[in-house]
Design a protein around this nucleic acid. Structure first.
Lengths: 345, 345
DNA sequence: CTGAAAGCGCTTACAG
DNA sequence: CTGAAAGCGCTTACAG
């Protein structure tokens, strides 16, 4: 079953290659019996069209490109799941490329997509748009940016409502009676981190006017949360509540508190952001903000498909090219308020 | 920056397209100054070769295909991480395709890879080789099967040592003094599940001759572990230890025990398989078998690359085409033996 | 070292 | 409804 081409099928079916192409692609204008002969021949020979050849002449690859900073963990797999779900419904393939957090590589990854994909999904979490992004984005290639700083001409952007989520969390903590609310920030150069910090600040200013901000720097990983936890405990006055910009840091912080014999939420309340699977399993279960990453991926894919084929079941044409994905407050034990729903495994 | 082709570069550099091609591909036999002119022209025009065209004429796609049952969770993301790591070192792209557990779709996915990839990594966990696999595998396309039942002619297979891991776990449980060891099995039609069950049986027969097997059926998800837990507690004589064929089921079982007020490991010891991130966070931390999935992906990718380009830094030529990936016993609290290392977050 | 030309395997106007 | 032919954008012997 080496390489059987359209010519072989044409020969066996005794028609021209043009007819084979039309028959196999369902182009209507083919006589019934001819079509059957072609199908039979194709089947007999186990013919599969050569994708590169088809792409070259049809200018379509039936493939969506996904360019990410890394292929790591929950976020990646959830995003891919969402993207895959809508891509397959359109019979589109997925070409994934990680640039390993390296802006240099990002440009290369973007450029290498030419001729391989019909459109691009790009995750570029840098708070400052790398100049490369704009330069390497082929303006003739439909593109949807995910959770990225915008700033690009007409490129569609889809974002998680990080700001709104952070505001909701501060509101919740305040409603639980907490007043001295510290924040463990994410990496300064990360756009999501930036938005969450902004949400914390805005909510604090509005709900607790006059209350000082209390921000400890972290970098989204557990170790930095652990350090931040110790740092907070060392302060002359301890906070009532700690809001970490993501769950991993909240977990690190929780561990630091446990080491120091500080009880959560008895002594200090704690909250995170993301609702990773672990969040419900730690003790106490972590109050957090849920982000439906699969949905983010699915919507981004729909947005992109709508750009590629305005009538293939993508987002409706009235959908604005920019979108925001809502978040959800998940109240568990760690924030000092009894959870609204019983704990489930 | 629409579509600039090699012709445009040739015109600007005032050479033939053949020369442009040779210069850009580093073919040595190009005069220094000509090469420079070509590079300058390419840069000026922001030229990027069209992948489909290049593939069609060179018969190489610079892409590895990955065909998986689903794009779900930890296993998927770890596998991808490992594959990506070695693929990028060779500047290879990754085309991923999920067949959503549907053998029918698997065939389609496999066939659709023609002309898109230089080789295939296929995960086909069905205990019975779907006849489709063999039929749809293009014999001219280098392929590596991952964790699949073999049975195919010369196709390379890479496996996790599920049998060995299960044996090691039973040995550990026995060494902790447990005698009545129950097993929560995975889905009957899953190859990994089958091997783990076989390991349990073999070890039991060897270490505890005469002891009856005690197998409860599960299907790898948490809910089935939960059911199995209740079922085990309802038995006239409770087991000393429960070995679940994966961590998710162990977690479900743990939850069932907690609900029933049964203490782990005090009343019943518990162990899982996989070492998912949650395993160390639950209480008590779960004794399990670690499988380095990223390494599995990396080795599979190397094996495949070696087939594609026997001298591009893939596995050494002496590497057998079949391989087994060792597992590691991770002792934590749940098995009733004090953990050998202090608990870390 | 360089160019003209064939060819990779398809698709798609263009005639008929 | 069908076929001959051009063309998609490259690469690669083949000459020179």
């Amino acid at each position: 079953m080496a390489s059987v081409t359209i010519k072989d099928v044409a020969r066996v079916a005794q028609v021209s290659v043009a007819t084979v192409s039309r028959a196999l692609n369902g182009h209507g204008n083919v006589a019934e019996d001819v079509r059957n002969r072609v199908f039979a021949a194709a089947q007999e020979l186990r013919y599969t069209p050569h994708a590169a050849a088809r792409s070259l002449s049809s200018r379509r690859t039936q493939t969506l490109g996904v360019v990410l900073p890394d292929l790591h963990g929950e976020f990646f797999s959830e995003l891919m799941r969402g993207i895959d779900q809508v891509a397959r419904a359109q019979r589109l393939h997925l070409l994934v490329s990680s640039y390993h957090g390296n802006p240099q590589e990002q440009g290369a990854a973007l450029r290498a997509m030419r001729g391989r994909v019909d459109g691009l999904l790009v995750l570029s979490p840098f708070a400052e748009m790398p100049p490369l992004l704009g330069e390497h984005l082929d303006s003739s290639l439909p593109t949807v940016l995910i959770n990225s700083q915008s700033g690009l001409d007409g490129t569609a952007v889809l974002r998680v409502d990080n700001h709104g989520g952070a505001v909701a969390m501060v509101e919740h903590l305040v409603s639980c009676g907490h007043r001295k609310i510290a924040f463990i920030a994410g990496p300064a150069d990360n756009f999501d981190a930036h938005e969450r910090l902004r949400g914390y600040r805005d909510a604090l200013a509005r709900l607790l006017p006059g209350a000082p901000e209390w921000v400890v720097q972290g970098d989204f990983d557990e170790a930095s949360g652990h350090r931040a936890g110790h740092e907070l405990l060392a302060a002359p006055q301890r906070p009532d509540a700690v809001f970490a910009a993501n769950d991993m840091m909240a977990l690190g912080c929780l561990f630091a508190f446990a080491q120091a014999g500080v009880r959560v939420p008895g002594d200090i309340a704690l909250a995170g952001f993301d609702d990773i699977p672990l969040a419900r399993y730690v003790h106490p279960a972590l109050t957090t903000i849920r982000v439906n990453i699969a949905e983010l991926g699915a919507r981004a894919a729909r947005l992109l498909i709508a750009q590629i084929t305005p009538d293939a079941g993508g987002e409706s044409p009235t959908t604005p090219s920019d979108g925001v994905l809502a978040t959800e407050l998940i109240v568990r034990e760690s924030s000092g308020s009894p959870p609204s729903t019983p704990r489930s495994p």
